[in-house]
Nucleic acid binder design. Structure first.
Lengths: 350, 350
DNA sequence: CGTAAGTTTGGGAGCGCTCTCACAATCATG
DNA sequence: CATGATTGTGAGAGCGCTCCCAAACTTACG
């Protein structure tokens, strides 16, 4: 008569399948969980019934008894912030996580926070913690209260940046920002640049601070002085690239290392407006390798980081921790790659 | 001795709380679920114990008996595609969904697909369907096999674009792309442009096709002829904007409506290279209002769509459907806004 | 051919909750 | 003050699964 949703029949359960296959509940359970001690003939028979009835076990019942959910949580504390700093980062990371979770037959619960709602956000995650076997934490700082709570309750988790505190006791996956930035700046040094400036990222974020450290290291190795006038503090934004470049121009730089591509593109706009040629007058290197970096003129030399891989590796580590294959904590630094294009001047100008 | 995770004590259950509060399991359950027929004194007493013990009910047990999970699924079939077409779309939509789910105390399970894996992707979602009370489906077409299955099993779902089939039987939230595009092109007409070209989006995607329709409608209303030579088929990409603009230049356009900002920026680059002034020689209008659109010169006139709101509205509709407050199906079109900046020439040139 | 070991199957308990029902206590009403 | 309605509380069943144990049946070997 009506088309109401509860007209749909009660889904089948183990018992139903058992009856239809002429065996017991236990046997069906064994078949489903691929356990030994089931004869080949019954296994085949049961599988046939399962398939033909389109049966799949009730996850809630399973969770209840196994104390495992086969669900992991992904926590992104400041979504908009992250999204605008690098719009590709977030989807790409999630894609990496998704790939690993699905390939290992887990599901992912996504928690996205808003600024200013940290408390309720964390308490919600903590309250739902029995729904998840573990957590991936993106872009949080390790002095985050969430981290402390997780350690307390023994919930397995992996961070996707280098924690600033408890570094040796927390599992994480990251790239070696120090080394990557150092390599980028060394590249500028090798091209003969001597007044190399930098527009930093947000320095209260580990990635930002690490990239600045890499910049200093490269200068040090090259025997160049570190000059605070050549450091413009930024926040990974386009705007801070624009403003930073203007400031650095006054300081007579002949090269700029920007802590992100977005920042580099902002800088490029400022240089353009000032009539400064890139790379002839000022060489420019970015960080991230966004699609944008080949859509500007000149194309950006930049540092590529394996975001996708970061996500999948972090997830695989987490699942290994959950399944007890690996001791905790686990730490991994992924390699980056300097992508040389036009803005650094290493290629002949056309 | 060791620091293994299973050193952590078994979490408390209802029974434990009941004992500590000196009442029965049932009473505690009533307090937790805010049911009537609990005296004020016991309610307070029980709440105190719950808080002090940090108790929260086991979701699996709850799900098992209530047949409700308080979890919704968000399905994004072709992640990378979506992400690169408009990098802000995806995080922003998710943010909208997240906001609504958390405010109504649900959690969100994210399913991201890869191209070419549709079958396993959908079967996985369907297999886990008891884990979710309903689904939000982003960027799928309604001839998608998933949609058919969902209808079959009676799973509530809401799409976040206008379905191309079964349009009146499926719940969805979208913007009126036809009307939005029409308004954008009409704006160009009002500025006195007469040879208005368009670079379309992917025409097998409803949004893309609808925007082309809007373009045609506007010409029709203005009494301008529809000339196929002024239509460059694109795919929402930067590249197709670049190529499309070159083609349209040969056809002597004096204005271009691009189906996305990314496309418009590609077109801008082509116009720039050809020495064509924007907006003086060719006026340009985009679609989406990405942050990029103010970071190019001239700043882009474009159509802003309420992506965030789309996500939260779709979610609220879904939860209403789930909770039975609303009859199915539900359909909503959200208004867009034409954001006038420099590229259309409506503002005085500086 | 008896016995031990291994293989295959089924039944019962129980995970932690909600829901129904029974019962006790309180209140209003004639 | 007896009656019925309303409010407050607890006990039992059961959601659908896994896990443990017992039973039945095979096989191997002295």
């Amino acid at each position: 008569m009506s088309m109401r949703q509860n007209d749909h029949p009660r889904p089948l359960n183990l018992e139903d399948i058992a009856r239809k296959a002429g065996v017991s509940r236990s046997t069906v359970s064994r078949v489903i969980n691929d356990e030994p001690y089931v004869s080949e003939t019954t296994r085949v028979k049961v599988q046939a019934v399962i398939r033909s009835e389109g049966y799949s076990p009730n996850p809630a019942a399973r969770m209840l008894v196994t104390q495992r959910t086969r669900v992991i949580g992904v926590v992104i504390p400041h979504t908009l912030h992250v999204a605008f700093q690098d719009p590709y980062y977030f989807p790409t990371l999630l894609q990496g996580v998704a790939e690993a979770t699905t390939s290992r037959d887990y599901a992912m619960l996504l928690w996205m926070g808003e600024r200013g709602e940290e408390e309720t956000f964390y308490s919600r995650i903590l309250r739902q913690n029995r729904l998840m076997d573990g957590l991936i934490i993106a872009s949080a700082t390790s002095d985050d209260p969430l981290v402390a709570h997780l350690v307390e309750t023994g919930t397995p988790f992996v961070m996707v940046e280098r924690p600033s505190r408890f570094t040796d006791r927390i599992s994480y996956v990251s790239v070696d920002n120090v080394q990557a930035a150092q390599q980028a700046v060394a590249h500028l040094v090798n091209l003969g640049r001597t007044r190399i400036g930098t527009i930093t990222g947000a320095l209260d974020i580990v990635d930002g601070a690490d990239r600045l450290t890499g910049y200093r290291n490269a200068l040090h190795v090259a025997g160049l002085p570190f000059d605070p006038a050549l450091v413009a503090e930024g926040r990974f934004t386009h705007q801070s690239g624009y403003v930073g470049a203007k400031r650095l121009l006054k300081a007579q730089v002949d090269a700029i290392f920007a802590a992100s591509d977005i920042t580099a593109i902002g800088a490029l706009q400022a240089l353009d407006e000032a009539g400064v040629r890139v790379p002839q007058d000022v060489a420019l290197v970015g960080f991230d390798d966004l699609p944008n970096s080949v859509q500007v003129t000149p194309q950006l030399t930049t540092v590529r980081q394996p975001i996708h891989h970061k996500g999948s590796l972090a997830t695989n580590l987490l699942l290994d921790l959950i399944e007890g294959t690996l001791p905790t904590p686990q730490q991994q630094l992924l390699p980056t790659q300097l992508v040389i294009r036009q803005s650094c001047g290493a290629l002949a100008y056309s």
